[in-house]
């Protein structure tokens, strides 16, 4: 067992590479079942009357796109299916192209047949610097931070935002968050003081931080790829046109996650075996 104690960590890295890459390349799929916290978000969007105003903040950067983009896509698709009007924004400077990508690929791409119009059915507010200060400001005045949309059109000239004074005029807030500023700041400066319904999507690392806010300050949470996969399954059950592999990115990513988790368990066991073997006689201290 001496080899275990001196194991070069590059072997561990190689094992992890194989655990993630092989299921992805072989397109292995595992079934998923939506959990209550995901269903809370799904039902809220489902129950809102058609034409409700939903704000989606893309608070992440390309580094966490692999983990968060599938849930962002699923939420935008759900809003399109329900004909909700979307106000899209980001608190992260490198999140702006991600918003634009969601618009071009989903709203103007997959749902081109609906003829959704910028300004009437959705508005891209873009990015404003200031982090949590942006949330604090738009809580009282949307125009103080965003006098125009990302294309430079005054908000008063857009049918969707003409009647929106501040966050309180929106029916649901959604933050897809990878850190700061993100879910915690939306809870602290929007949902908590203004008593607004807030749903969040978060990375796996950030998700435990969201649980204490449920259910009063957060109505639900989509935790990482698993949360997104559950949402995609719920969406597929309600809208069969979305139950196809091309619209279920997160479900596809659950098999690599399964094998990576199993590898980590095996490594923990091996690490303990190595420690047990090398422990001096005389028992546990």
């Amino acid at each position: 067992m001496a080899w275990l104690q001196t194991l070069d960590r590059r072997w561990i890295f190689l094992a992890m590479l194989l655990a993630v890459a092989l299921p992805q390349l072989l397109q292995v799929r595992v079934p998923e079942k939506p959990t209550p916290l995901v269903l809370n978000v799904f039902r809220k969007i489902e129950e809102l009357p058609e034409g409700s105003r939903v704000l989606i903040s893309f608070d992440y950067s390309p580094s966490s796109e692999g983990e968060l983009a599938p849930m962002a896509a699923a939420l935008v698709r759900h809003c399109c299916e329900k004909r909700h009007r979307m106000v899209l924004m980001t608190l992260w400077p490198d999140g702006k192209p991600l918003v634009e990508r969601a618009i071009s690929r989903i709203i103007e791409g997959e749902y081109a047949a609906l003829g959704l119009q910028a300004g009437r059915d959705y508005v891209n507010l873009g990015y404003r610097p200031g982090k949590e200060v942006v949330i604090k400001t738009i809580a009282t005045s949307l125009r103080a931070e965003f006098p125009t949309d990302d294309a430079g059109t005054p908000l008063d000239d857009l049918p969707l935002t003409a009647e929106v004074t501040n966050l309180q005029d929106l029916d649901l807030l959604i933050s897809i968050s990878a850190g700061f500023p993100g879910l915690k700041e939306w809870v602290q400066y929007a949902s908590s003081p203004l008593k607004l319904p807030l749903a969040v999507g978060a990375t796996a690392v950030q998700a435990p931080q969201a649980y204490p806010y449920i259910p009063r300050q957060l109505l639900g949470i989509l935790a990482a790829v698993k949360g997104a996969a559950e949402y995609e399954v719920a969406l597929g059950e309600r809208y069969p046109n979305l139950a196809i592999p091309e619209r279920q990115d997160a479900v596809r990513r659950m098999a690599p996650q399964l094998w990576a988790h199993l590898l980590i368990i095996a490594l923990i066991v091996l690490g303990n075996v190595a420690a047990l073997v090398s422990r001096p006689r005389g028992g546990v201290r």
Binding site: I12, A260, L263, I264, L267, G271, N272, A275, L276
Partner: peptide, 15 residues
Amino acid sequence: AFYVASAAFRAFRWK
């Protein structure tokens, strides 16, 4: 992902 794996091997001890 790689660092999580190496940390799991190194730091999670039944002591």
